[in-house]
Simulated scan of single mutants.
Amino acid sequence: MSLILRPDVCATDTADGMVLLDEVTGRYWQLNHTAALVLRGLVDGAEPPDVARALCEAYPRITAERADADTASITRALIEARLVVSA
């Protein structure tokens, strides 16, 4: 599942993760480090299981099940917020 940011969504890295701005609505979204890692992975073309593995590598205390659930939840939230679309 490769995703891209909608053309009217801007992403900026921050010390705490990432901020997304929907230029149409003017709404901002603050992503923590975990959500930013998931978004970057999906935008870079990684599949969700690969992104979940990257979460486990970045955060050794996280279980594989939790990484899978977090990846799915974050992906669903990004899609529902209409910040990303399928590539």
Rank of each mutant, 00 (worst) to 15 (best):
T34P: 00
M18V: 04
D70K: 10
I74S: 08
E23S: 14
R40C: 03
V38E: 01
L21F: 01
N32A: 03
S2N: 13
R27W: 06
T71W: 10
D70P: 00
L31Q: 03
Q30F: 02
I79Y: 06
M1I: 07
D22A: 04
A69M: 12
L39Y: 07
P60W: 07
R40W: 03
P60D: 10
V19F: 00
H33P: 00
N32Q: 05
A72N: 12
V85D: 13
G17A: 06
A72R: 15
Y59R: 13
L83E: 01
A15Y: 06
T63V: 06
T25W: 01
A64M: 11
M18F: 01
V19S: 02
A36Q: 11
R66M: 15
A58P: 03
A11F: 00
L55Q: 05
L83V: 08
V9C: 10
D22P: 04
A81P: 01
D44P: 00
V9N: 10
L39F: 10
L55R: 03
T25Q: 04
D44M: 05
I74P: 02
R61V: 12
E65K: 15
A35L: 01
R61W: 09
A46L: 15
D16L: 11
A15L: 13
A64Q: 14
T75Q: 15
V51M: 05
R61M: 06
E80A: 15
E47N: 04
L20S: 09
S2F: 05
L83Q: 09
L55W: 04
T34I: 14
A81H: 13
A67R: 04
C10Q: 14
R66N: 14
T34H: 05
L21I: 08
Q30N: 08
A67W: 03
I74D: 07
A81F: 04
L39S: 06
A64G: 12
D22W: 08
A77H: 08
E23D: 12
G45Y: 06
V24G: 01
A54W: 08
L55E: 05
D16N: 10
G45P: 03
A64D: 11
N32Y: 00
L78C: 11
A81I: 02
R82I: 02
M1Y: 05
R27I: 06
T71D: 12
W29Q: 07
D13T: 12
L37M: 14
L21V: 11
S86E: 15
Q30M: 07
H33Y: 00
D22R: 05
R61F: 08
H33W: 01
M1G: 15
T14P: 03
P60G: 08
D16K: 09
A15G: 15
E65P: 00
A36E: 10
A36M: 06
D16C: 01
A87F: 12
L21D: 01
E57H: 11
L78F: 06
D50V: 13
D50S: 13
R40D: 14
I4W: 02
A35I: 00
L37S: 07
L20D: 06
Y28E: 13
R76N: 13
L37Y: 02
V24S: 11
L78W: 07
L39A: 09
D70S: 11
Y59D: 13
D8Y: 13
A15S: 14
R53V: 04
L20V: 07
A81T: 12
V38H: 03
